[in-house]
Nucleic acid binder design. Sequence first.
DNA 1: CTGTTACCATACGGTAGCGTATGGTCTTTA
DNA 2: TAAAGACCATACGCTACCGTATGGTAACAG
Lengths: 185, 185
Amino acid sequence: MVPLMTERLSAATWTEMALRVLADRGIEAVRVEPLARLLGVTKGSFYWHFADRRELLDSVLLGWEQAATFDVIDAVELACDEPDDRLRELTRLVFRHGGPLDRAVRAWASHDESAANAVARVDSRRYAFVRALLEAHGLTPPTAAMRARLLYTSLIGEQHTSLKLARKHRVEWALRNLEFLLDRG
Amino acid sequence: MVPLMTERLSAATWTEMALRVLADRGIEAVRVEPLARLLGVTKGSFYWHFADRRELLDSVLLGWEQAATFDVIDAVELACDEPDDRLRELTRLVFRHGGPLDRAVRAWASHDESAANAVARVDSRRYAFVRALLEAHGLTPPTAAMRARLLYTSLIGEQHTSLKLARKHRVEWALRNLEFLLDRG
DNA sequence: CTGTTACCATACGGTAGCGTATGGTCTTTA
DNA sequence: TAAAGACCATACGCTACCGTATGGTAACAG
């Protein structure tokens, strides 16, 4: 082969491509040789940047965990200030940008321990965020804790159910359910 | 090898074992040769009962769909009569018998179309069941539809989140959230 | 008792992916 | 400009699994 050497790769490039493949084909599709083909190189490159496949998967997990924690929380906090506005924004965000990647990672986590741990950490941070918002809105701490769980699990469930319904209506219903939660503490 | 011929297998035996493996190791672990080892036979047996691996997977999916549709609905309907009692029973059921198998199938469905279709059918039947119960409880049809979605997605979400909390408290919270949803008006 | 059918073992060829070894080519540093 | 290091190609052996081909053994029919 003619070594053109137009572009060199970094470990981050591999991780990003792995995240893409994970998002739309699942963890079983993120394998080093197919990934190499997608990147236009051979696995000789891969094994220079990573010790083995597991190391790539750990890197993927780390990347997702950081993004998943701060991206959504930061996005919400930047978008508005009032607690109830933030909850509405959060709900919209789940449906819009509402995560084939999240879904793939969660599917992965169902039978991989390290993935499960990462998901657990993300869940607990996001849950705490929702709970704090409900408290700030005026719910008592015990009530906020319960309602936050209801709301959070529901948003997760939305990503995993296949209830056929126009996206427009799904968001609308979710928002009205949110109002219900906010009204009747 | 000495052919003792102590026991012969049927297609159903293969499917049941596949369901077990699916439940605790995921769909990627249900493969014909490992399965044969678990059953104490060779794949010569498998390919007599099935054309290929995909046929087994379809059989697994069919088995799950039937069980998942009627088992939970029937169990609830047999346990009690009043709509709100049935909803409480349903909630308890999700946490008790609350499905590593369901979880595995849903994970599988995230990147397999036929599995996704099966999950969609099950979801729509279960959702209709919850919605009917909420209507029977006295909620108006539009309200019942929305709350049913909130409740159903939340129960699904409970299976997919890893929020560390004692099982006892999880059920308790879920039941109190249910009471909240049952509130009329 | 003989043939047919149901069920299974064994052996084979084939593919896909893992990880290693080795050497080549660029880039950077001295 | 020569040496060192960064990055990649190629080739290799290995394992796990798929699906097929073929023949053997049990049970049952006639």
